[in-house]
Design a protein around this nucleic acid. Structure first.
Length: 328
DNA sequence: AAGGGTATCAACCGCTCGTAT
DNA sequence: AATACGAGCGGTTGATACCCT
């Protein structure tokens, strides 16, 4: 970057030495790592002065927390992590640092970037407000099931299945969800005695929210409706937040028992409340037609071909539309 | 191969909050 | 109680990698 010449606005004496900006060099990284190894992190302004780095304390802190800290996890977010982000964002909104606390090794910056580049991108393509309830519903009804399906497929005897044993069988969620003739069903309920960590998440987070300051960032109707429920009757008591994304995934199915209107699906008759969720009702008039076209799905180049990101599949939208038409 | 458009992500900025004085 | 300062947060920017034509 070439933008490291701008000097700070202060006119102080010894700090008059021009501060560096822009990308960090290897030497700077080493300097910072070495200093923190000797003095531990914190007191960033002091660190910036004493370490010999011509950087602001802020910059040092950011570089350390987002990049140099040993436990920072690099690489793509796993489906489990993505699912957890979606869930927690529906709960908390843009509380990135709070969300990041539940994804070990991931930084708020990374999660924020993920949301803006992947999630909001889809909202833009669909021409709906990413903060809208409609988009939240789409995430719940399309994106999260797809992630869940992907997780299932990628690890039939996966960690979560083996760890928690709540999966009665490999679950082709989407194929059920978008089946030809039936309203998309939810997966069968897990065996009662199994740990239900995701449900624990919801319960414990709700409890936490009630005790913390008001937060109107959450736009998910299920969030507010959950809070109005006596969750202790439905969910097991918990003591801690999940720290492992897999934990959240494990009980995603349980979470989906809670419908948007706050009702809880009875275990004996899982049926998704698709009547209250209509893609056609979400999209502006004509947009669905524009997206789907005349069945010419190849034109829908707004969908990534990489399965890792192609969570909004045109064929599913198309099937969903057919389902809608039959219902009307 | 080149140019343009898009996506990604590291880094910066302004603001708020908490704490010390 | 008022003020100063450091830390942290969320929004935004800009460089660059990548893709497409």
């Amino acid at each position: 970057m070439s933008s490291m010449s701008k000097s700070p606005s202060n006119t102080s004496t010894e700090e008059d030495v021009e501060l560096r900006r822009g990308p960090w060099t290897l030497e700077e990284d080493n300097l910072l790592i070495h200093y923190i190894a000797c003095h531990s992190e914190g007191r960033w302004n002091l660190l910036a002065k004493r370490s010999g780095l011509r950087r602001t304390g802020k910059s040092c802190r950011l570089r350390w927390l987002n990049y140099l800290k040993p436990d920072v996890k690099r690489g793509n977010l796993t489906p489990q992590e993505q699912l957890l982000i979606l869930e927690l964002h529906s709960k908390w909104g843009n509380r990135w640092s709070k969300i990041a606390q539940h994804l070990p090794g991931r930084t708020d910056n990374e999660i924020k970037n993920y949301w803006r580049t992947r999630v909001q991108k889809q909202a833009r393509h669909l021409k709906i407000d990413s903060n809208s309830t409609a988009f939240q519903d789409m995430i719940r009804c399309y994106w999260m099931p797809r992630l869940y399906q992907k997780i299932e497929r990628s690890s039939p005897s996966s960690t979560m299945s083996s760890q928690n044993s709540v999966m009665p069988q490999p679950l082709d969620y989407a194929s059920q969800h978008y089946s030809e003739s039936l309203p998309p069903p939810l997966p069968p309920p897990p065996p009662p005695p199994q740990p239900q960590v995701f449900a624990q998440t919801i319960h414990s987070l709700d409890h936490h929210e009630k005790t913390s300051s008001s937060n109107n960032c959450s736009t998910s109707p299920s969030s507010s409706s959950l809070e109005s429920m006596n969750t202790s009757q439905v969910l097991p008591q918990v003591s801690e937040y999940p720290t492992n994304p897999c934990d959240a995934i494990t009980n995603y199915k349980d979470h989906n028992r809670f419908l948007k209107d706050g009702s809880c699906v009875d275990n004996s008759s899982y049926s998704y409340d698709m009547e209250s969720f209509s893609l056609a009702s979400i999209l502006p008039t004509g947009d669905l037609d524009n997206l789907v076209g005349d069945g010419n799905l190849a034109e829908s180049n707004w969908v990534d071909n990489d399965l890792g990101d192609s969570l909004w599949m045109m064929d599913e939208l198309w099937q969903f539309r057919k389902f809608q038409e039959r219902g009307n």
